[in-house]
Simulated assay, not measured.
Amino acid sequence: MSGDDRAQTALARRLRELRNSRWPDLRITQAQLRQAFEVSLALISSWESTRAAKIPPPHRLEKYATFFATRRSIVNGHARVLPLTDLTPDELDEQRELFAELTRLRREALRAQLSGEDSEPSSGRDIYRDNPWRFPDGEPITIICSQLPEDQRTTIPYPSPDGLDYIELYKHSDLDSLFELHGHLRAANPRSLVTLRAPEDLRSDDFTAHLVLLGGIDNSEVTTSLRERIQLPVRKVPDRDGELGPYFEVHEGGDTPARHHPRHTGSGADIRLLEDVAFFYRGVNPDNVERTLTICNGMYARGVYGVVRALTDERFRDRNAAYLRERFGDATSYSILTRVLIVGRAVVTPDWTRDYVRLHEWSQPPPGD
């Protein structure tokens, strides 16, 4: 085994050693770690694999260090990660030492992994391999994009199809998001047909592809039907009298749903958006269980753009995609309600590894789980 190979597997071997041998009289199972870390069993197993090891992010290693810093992490067979404030001074010292060790091993594993990748010809890499926007070769993809209301379409240049300079894309809203996502889908899926549709133009075959609902498509009869059939706990509420503009509402079984509003400054003609709220959902297409349904929505157009960029921006897409895999594992459907910061005219790509950015998360486990 080469030095690079040893470095890539050292972290996985150490994580397995902690689970099996940390306390000689108490063997921890992967199922208990799954319970404590709130991740999938497959993910725990991948972190311990010496054949195809996945490298955990720092916040997961911090949980490992905290868990194995004290035997109080196990009570009557129940596994938990104690808050750092509950640890004794000796346990805190142990936690810091373990975290430092695991961080070092992670750094060495990443260095070895990057070294191995750099030795490959760039043409042989698949940079989209683990991205949620990558689908199996040849499977069709349909983007259903939001549409400008009829009264707004009459104000744009050449609104009639009979005009000499008519441009069909003018009828879509969220053009920034559409331009960004369409290009990414074409690049990530070069052997798939990527079709753009407005709700009024949908055809029968469009419903059985990988569906992407993009933008403020809530008022469309077609897309409203799709949302009702998947029964999400999050819904977009339009502006109402007495309310501070539109908002997302989260229902989790309580009497009072949580509300998440965008943030503004100023008023009237001088109002400016400081922070939007956006929604990302991935699940099974209700019209074809072998295809997916994805929703990218926001209170405003820049929220839609931000949630699209979360998985297309080359500086954040791999990190956010890794977070989705680690957080939701093999869930059949999941969603994130996220903040999208606006600085001047610029939309800041949300980093889902930051707790502050994520407003709400939800997932549905696979059948029988």
Rank of each mutant, 00 (worst) to 15 (best):
G3D: 15
G3E: 15
G3W: 10
D4E: 15
Q8W: 08
A10M: 06
R14G: 05
L15P: 01
R19W: 07
R19M: 14
N20M: 12
N20T: 13
P24T: 01
L26M: 14
A31F: 11
Q32D: 08
F37Q: 13
E38G: 10
L41M: 05
A42D: 12
I55S: 02
P56Y: 05
Y64P: 00
A65Q: 06
T66R: 10
F68Y: 10
H78K: 12
A79S: 10
D86E: 14
L87K: 01
L87I: 04
E94P: 00
Q95W: 00
P121H: 08
G124W: 09
D126Y: 04
D137H: 05
G138N: 01
E139L: 11
P140I: 04
P140H: 05
I141A: 03
I143G: 05
I144F: 05
Q147V: 08
E150C: 00
Q152S: 09
Q152G: 00
I156T: 08
P157Q: 13
P157H: 11
L164F: 11
I167M: 09
E168S: 11
L169W: 05
Y170V: 03
D174I: 13
D176I: 04
E180A: 15
E180S: 15
R186L: 15
R186Y: 07
A187P: 06
N189D: 12
P190L: 03
V194Y: 05
T195A: 15
L196F: 12
D201T: 11
R203L: 13
F207G: 04
V212W: 11
L214I: 06
G215I: 03
G216V: 01
I217W: 00
N219P: 00
S220F: 00
T224F: 14
S225H: 10
R229P: 00
R229D: 04
Q231D: 10
D239C: 01
G245Q: 00
P246K: 07
P246I: 08
G253I: 06
G254I: 05
D255S: 11
T256F: 02
T256H: 03
H260S: 08
R263Q: 09
H264I: 06
G266P: 00
G268K: 11
G268F: 13
D270R: 12
R272E: 15
E275C: 09
F280L: 10
R282W: 02
P286W: 06
T292C: 11
T292S: 15
T292R: 15
T292N: 14
T292I: 07
N297G: 11
G298L: 07
A301S: 13
G303E: 06
G303T: 02
Y305C: 08
G306P: 13
V307E: 03
A310Q: 04
L311K: 03
T312G: 10
F316G: 03
A322T: 15
E326W: 13
E326A: 09
R327W: 09
D330G: 11
A331R: 03
S335Y: 01
R339P: 03
R339M: 07
V340R: 07
L341E: 08
L341I: 08
G344V: 11
V347F: 11
P350S: 03
P350V: 01
T353D: 05
R354D: 14
D355Y: 10
R358F: 06
R358H: 02
E361P: 01
G368E: 04
